[in-house]
Computed example of a mutant assay.
Amino acid sequence: MSFRSEPFLWIHLAGLAVLPLFLELTWLGLAIAESLVPVWLELILLAIVGIVPIAWMQWQKPFDIFSLLFVALQPQQLTSQQRQILRLFKTRKHRVLTLFAVLAMGWALWKLAVFAPLAAPAAARLTQSRGLGLGLAIVGFLGSNLFLQVPISVLGVLLTSNGQFEVTEPLTPEEVSQSVTVLGFRVGNILPTVASNNL
């Protein structure tokens, strides 16, 4: 079976659909109340809190895509093909894509700040506290980065040639535990029907 048929790849690629919602939340947060400090200082704070943690994770220990919500497959349950996919998240191409996403989100943050006044009518319905606004913006921008970085990485895997994939050495179960970030509990099965019939 082609590695491109792996359902977890498509599940996480679909995360791009959530990106606009988090960007809108960031935009709304930036429009709440007047800034008490220079806008550029707020943007630096947002960039540090929103971009750096996700980019660092993807650069050092990429997100484990064999997970849903708060559960992830145990390394011993991963097939050889799945561990090959995880190996691709450790390549130079993956890091280039991570850097591209960082630049894209930096540009997006600047544009959201420039056009923040356009969101003022919607923001006027909320408590006019700059602290609340920054809190919403931080949550929104952190989510935006997560739901861009992970799908971009998945897209990089999907664009890998069949020949390159075939010569990719799978991570060992021990290397999986050391090489990827798990945001949740390890379990034996997540998609039992797919796992038993297709993998």
Rank of each mutant, 00 (worst) to 15 (best):
F89M: 14
K90N: 12
G106E: 11
V114M: 13
F141W: 13
G131Y: 11
I138F: 12
V96A: 09
Q77K: 15
Q76C: 00
T79A: 09
R92Y: 02
R87N: 09
L142D: 00
A104D: 02
N145V: 00
F141S: 07
A113L: 10
L112K: 07
Q84Y: 01
P121G: 06
G140Y: 05
L126D: 05
W110L: 13
A116S: 15
S80I: 11
A123N: 06
R83H: 07
L86K: 01
A124Q: 14
T91P: 08
Q76P: 00
G143D: 03
G133W: 11
P75F: 06
G143L: 07
S144I: 05
Q82T: 02
A137T: 09
A124S: 15
N145W: 00
Q82Y: 01
T127D: 05
G143A: 11
S80G: 02
L146E: 00
Q81V: 09
R95S: 09
A108N: 02
A108R: 10
L86V: 05
M105Q: 15
V102R: 03
A123E: 03
T127L: 14
R125V: 03
P121W: 07
G131C: 03
L109A: 07
L103Y: 04
G143K: 03
T98Q: 10
A113Q: 12
G140D: 07
L103N: 03
F100V: 15
Q74G: 01
L118G: 00
P75G: 09
Q76G: 10
G140W: 06
A119T: 05
